[in-house]
Nucleic acid binder design. Structure first.
Lengths: 121, 121
DNA sequence: AGCGGTTGCTTGGTAGACTTAGCGAAGTCA
DNA sequence: TGACTTCGCTAAGTCTACCAAGCAACCGCT
């Protein structure tokens, strides 16, 4: 009987996942804490679903447990599932925006042209 | 001159990136705020590098700007340097070629314009 | 001159992410 | 039986991510 907070359900799944991975790696909370430079009480709270860790904490946990950061984020629901599939979001626009060889104005006009083409069909 | 905090360098890069993407999409802070359900003052602070946004905020921003969450996280340094290929092949051209909404001629002229822009710099 | 709308920003406050210090149970070795 | 260690956890505090309210400057309008 103590002043405990309800583990908010959906996040305890992530906690369970982390705990099982930690135990699979045969690490104690304090050992994982040292590897991740996250305090061990906080790790305990994360595993019990009391708090939702930041992405940086998730990343360092993933590294310590030899998991990919993506796996971690996916488990945490921070990644859209299956972003990569074809054409759902305008890939051309995205590629233009991220192109380091174009100025901002060039990007804008290219996108305008592209949209014009789409409309013209 | 006001009591401003130093933008901690590395994070202002992410802010600049977000701001440029927002402006490319021709969105005001308030419009982006509505799309992301993140308050507009906070978006302003993020763009100026005053705070490091959580992964969930980053994710909703990415969605609103039609960027993949991975791109966002990578820009924020939250992802292990995913080699992400693409350095070799021009992503823009590839995206244009694969776009099902464009005719062959449209694709050709778009690519021509794109190459012209690259040369013009 | 005013107005109504939009822009980005500052201020003040709240909540929760995260820390340090320390507790009780269980094991080990003398 | 100690004394010592290691386990996970609690308690209490600090810091900062994030929000609501509001301000100053700018834009057409009339």
């Amino acid at each position: 009987m103590s002043t405990m907070v309800a583990p908010s359900e959906s996040w305890s799944a992530l906690g369970d996942f982390i705990r099982s991975q930690r135990q699979l790696a045969r690490l104690s909370l304090r050992q994982l804490a040292e590897l991740t430079s996250v305090s061990n009480p906080y790790l305990s709270q994360i595993e019990r679903g009391l708090y939702r860790p930041s992405a940086q904490v998730l990343k360092s946990i993933a590294e310590a447990l030899h998991l990919s950061a993506e796996t971690m984020y996916a488990e945490a629901g921070l990644l859209d599932q299956r972003v990569d599939d074809a054409g759902a979001t305008p890939r051309v626009e995205q590629a233009i925006r991220l192109d380091p060889g174009l100025s901002t104005e060039q990007k804008e006009t290219l996108i305008q042209v592209y949209r014009g083409f789409l409309r013209a069909r």
